[in-house]
């Protein structure tokens, strides 16, 4: 379904691009994983990387995938997990994010204290962000 047009194929990135990107993302994740939460380094990193990706995505400089012009009505099924999650997240937040009513961030904090988990989650985040930038 995501087949490139001839014009897009002509502008395809070089073969070393994807491996270099993987190395870059993994390297960044290993570095960022060492930054503690609430630190100046973490804040600057998220502002820098997040801002750069946001700009690339909004300006469509790296768009590679053909536009999805319409989706079937079955797309509404995606509202189910979104509403389930949002309901419990918002209720837990409103109740103060306690042990009895934990928000996702409250559950994630103990996990993100560990370097490898933090690096892995950051790698997932930056990979997802890149996928959005190219849409």
């Amino acid at each position: 379904m995501d087949q490139q047009s001839p014009a897009a194929a002509e502008s395809a990135p070089p073969r070393w691009y994807a491996p270099a990107r993987v190395v870059g993302f993994v390297g960044a994740s290993l570095a960022v994983g060492a930054f503690p939460s609430f630190s100046l380094r973490s804040t600057i990193t998220m502002i820098g990387i997040g801002g750069a990706f946001f700009w690339l995505g909004v300006t469509r400089r790296l768009t590679r995938h053909p536009a999805v012009r319409q989706v079937a009505r079955q797309a509404l099924w995606w509202l189910v997990p979104v509403l389930v999650f949002a309901t419990f997240e918002l209720v837990s937040f409103a109740l103060g994010s306690t042990a009895a009513h934990p928000t996702l961030s409250a559950l994630a904090d103990p996990v993100l204290q560990h370097y490898w988990a933090r690096a892995a989650v950051f790698l997932g985040w930056i990979t997802g962000y890149w996928a959005l930038v190219k849409r």
């Binding site: 939460s37 990706f53 946001f54 909004v58 961030s105 985040w125 962000y129």
Partner: peptide, 22 residues
């Protein structure tokens, strides 16, 4: 204004900020 684009990219940016830098 590419509202959908801004909203989705902004949301993902916020997710990263929320879990790594807050």
């Amino acid at each position: 204004v590419p509202f959908g684009r801004v909203a989705l990219l902004g949301f993902w940016w916020w997710v990263g900020f929320h879990f790594f830098a807050r």
